[in-house]
Amino acid sequence: MNKSSAPRQSLGELLPKLVVAPTFVVAVIFIYGFMLMNAWLSFSSSRMLPKYDWAGFIQYEKLFANDRWWVAAENLFIFGVLFIVICLLLGLFMAIFLDQKIRAEGAIRTIYLYPMALSFIVTGTAWKWILNPELGIQRLVREMGFESFTFDWLVNTDMAIYTVVIAGVWQSSGFVMALCLAGLRGVDDNIIKAAKVDGASMPLIYRKIIIPGLRPVFFSAFIILTHIAIKSFDLIIALTGGGPGFATDVPATFMYTFSFTRGQIGLGSAASMMMLMAVIAIIVPYLYSELREKNNEH
């Protein structure tokens, strides 16, 4: 109540700042402070318990000498590239087909997008059952008469990572479709009409005018998909548990295993710093180009 004794004007000026102050403090501590603490941990000798000492690059050296880390990094690369490319292509084509004045468009869109509402744990559980070599798709196809059909990717060390791609694409491609569809609806009809008058065929119009016009949409979709890929943790835990062995480990599961079940906190934090670097490497150019575009508008 003593605030009311202060001059009115300064209270009026102060109030908005007071309202955002808690969020500011939270951001400083829980985002930036924690990132710094985590960085420090990655330069410490921490094992079971966090220790705030200075051990130089020991944890990073251990990380880079760890085969399992390189398996995880390679898996992220395989998964990331396939997941992103397939999602973008599928999403684009479904959006183009859906944009042909389709009856029941709303219902079809709803079907394509519902997996996005599910938890990756649910998705992983469902696909684990479907891909199960004994009772899943393999059995289904064999019962249909193809006796020698084999589909055991889920338990096959070399192929298991591709099951993660399948489940991930199933979950996220509808989202790219929704983004692309919104983009297609934003294309100026007059340009298309003009091109038609000039005798251009529809495929040509798509290739030369519409799809290039969707560049910003692809860009945001790419950023989000990359983000999902780098952070992917739940899907792998639920679908393969990182196995067989550690054949489907990714950096996120690696970080979790070493930090929370193996008591290697320093190593875990070094792994998480590498994930941060990967995100920064992708986000910074994106923000840069976004800002440049905004400035050009003025």
Binding site: V20, F24, A27, F30, I31, N38
Partner: peptide, 27 residues
């Protein structure tokens, strides 16, 4: 400084949460 504050928050939507997991556990 309000724009700067917003920019600060924006970055919070992009970080992989793995980098705050360990300090948060301690907190």
């Amino acid at each position: 400084g309000s724009t700067l504050f917003f920019g600060m928050l924006l970055i919070g939507t992009m970080i992989p949460f793995q980098v705050v997991l360990l300090p948060m556990a301690r907190m």
